[in-house]
């Protein structure tokens, strides 16, 4: 479970990205964060991943208060999460296979086991045939699929995606949305920040909306 308790986030310079947000995300839930640019969606996701700490209030993930975690403990929290960023953040000088392998290198997985898991993740997102391809040779949708494979290769219980369908044409966006639906069906907690929440509404997503850092619904 993820809990936000009166969370405010102020960036240096005084800009308030989140203001008194209190909400709960239950295990296995599919949550869509809606709102315009600058509404605070990305900040909320970064707080869950421990990429930011709250200025006041508390954020807890599976009972761990993010603000109280030491810098040395944060990497272990991130390993339990799958992160898909708006810009896919693939390493362009490595093949799709090697990119998806990265989280397993971080956890020190043995090469033989890691290879099997990478192929399983690539197969899950329909990218196995592109395992040797370099990211620049892929379409936007394929790059996003590779990034999703990287996010799920460690079998995270929580998957966080920031605008996963931005910059994709409608057909690719629907494919990606269907992938997330499958993960949700498999019991993964999904938190998606998106401009286009209509993509996920058919899958029974709970929708909360942010505006200027405040929770509207």
């Amino acid at each position: 479970m993820i809990r936000f308790d009166a969370v405010t986030k102020r960036y240096p310079g005084g800009q308030e990205a989140l203001s008194g947000v209190t909400t709960e995300i239950r295990h296995g839930e599919l949550l869509v964060l809606a709102g315009h640019s600058g509404a605070g969606k990305s900040t909320l996701l970064k707080l869950i991943a421990g990429l930011e700490t709250p200025s006041s209030g508390s954020v807890s993930v599976n009972g761990q208060d993010i603000g109280r975690l030491k810098a040395t403990q944060l990497p272990y929290l991130r390993r339990s999460l799958g992160l898909v960023m708006q810009e896919h953040r693939l390493l362009l000088d490595r093949s799709v296979f090697d990119n998806v392998m990265l989280p397993l290198l971080v956890t020190g997985e043995r090469p033989q086991d890691a290879s099997k898991r990478v192929r399983a993740a690539l197969e899950r997102v329909g990218m196995l045939e592109h395992e040797r391809a370099m990211p620049v040779t892929l379409s936007g949708g394929e790059q996003q699929r590779a990034a999703i494979a990287r996010a799920i290769v460690n079998r995270p219980s929580i998957l966080i995606a920031d605008e996963p369908t931005a910059h994709l044409d409608p057909a690719y966006a629907r494919e990606i949305a269907a992938l997330f639906r499958d993960f949700h069906a498999a019991g993964v907690t999904l938190i998606l920040a998106t401009h286009d929440d209509t993509l996920f509404s058919p899958y029974g997503a709970r929708r909360i909306e942010l505006a200027r850092g405040k929770l509207l619904s």
Binding site: T72, P75, R79, R89
Partner: peptide, 13 residues
């Protein structure tokens, strides 16, 4: 860029 990605994926310092 690679370092940032690794840290994002849970790499320790």
């Amino acid at each position: 860029h690679e370092i940032a990605v690794l840290l994002l994926l849970g790499a320790t310092r």
